[in-house]
Design a protein around this nucleic acid. Structure first.
Lengths: 132, 132
DNA sequence: CTTGACCCTGACATTAATGGCAGGGTGTAT
DNA sequence: ATACACCCTGCCATTAATGTCAGGGTCAAG
């Protein structure tokens, strides 16, 4: 199957499919005219790649275990767990950070609604949050 | 005060101070030799800018209400509230998205620990999350 | 032979704030 | 005058996946 069809079948843009190849995630054959020829396995492979991308993993991380998870259940691939764990730590840190900001914003929005009375906690800034 | 001193006092890099100026957030005078001369008010101004940046606002958004909040309590500046509200919506969407991913990761990590028994929910992917 | 639907590579743009360099001027103390 | 600590502008880089050109082949149908 050629790249256009694979794109239609998987929802990945042609541009993305070429990018996955450049990142070493998929290696289609080439016809004599230079066109990429994808096997039928490619379809699942691309869906798998996209799934891991949705989890927020990078193509580099995915490349580290893709071959393994394509050939057996994920839990048999020892390379996967550390990636998940480090990603989870990332995400939790981000959530914590965003939650801090959200609470700060919520407070400040609330002080707009009830600003008619006192001025406590409104004009003085909260130096607690931090970024990157 | 010159830019180096302001940088030391506020913790903002010289590079950042020049950037804030380019974005219209602060307008120091110029000495005859071309050096920026900051008033003593600049120190609080920069801290205020940094505070809003920490809240995740962009320099453009900050520019929209900085003059106002520097001269009176935040709650008197009507330009501020809509920015807060839209940022809050942003943040909440991001938190929701990250939470979905986190739960997915947590599940998958858990299936590594308990993989000795059955294979339910392990090899089949979850197509529920989404990104950007 | 021309049209049109494919395919190819290579390159630049995107986002936002910041870091860092090159090349050069200023000012003060020795 | 020479060193040294400042300051200036302008420019490129950063991140990661994707979009989007330009300029060019391939191939089947008409």
């Amino acid at each position: 199957m050629k790249i256009g069809e694979l794109s239609r079948r998987t929802g990945a843009s042609i541009r993305s499919l070429r990018y996955y190849e450049a990142q070493g995630l998929i290696a289609p054959l080439r016809e004599s005219n230079g066109y990429r020829e994808y096997s039928t396995l490619a379809e699942e492979q691309v869906r798998t790649i996209r799934f891991y991308l949705q989890l927020g993993l990078t193509t580099e991380q995915i490349a580290g275990f893709l071959n393994c998870v394509l050939s057996r259940p994920e839990t048999f691939c020892t390379e996967v767990l550390p990636v998940y764990e480090s990603k989870l730590a990332d995400i939790e840190a981000q959530i914590a950070q965003l939650t801090r900001i959200r609470d700060n914003l919520t407070d400040r929005i609330a002080s707009f609604r009830g600003e008619s009375k006192q001025g406590e906690g409104v004009s003085k800034r909260d130096e607690s949050s931090e970024r990157r």
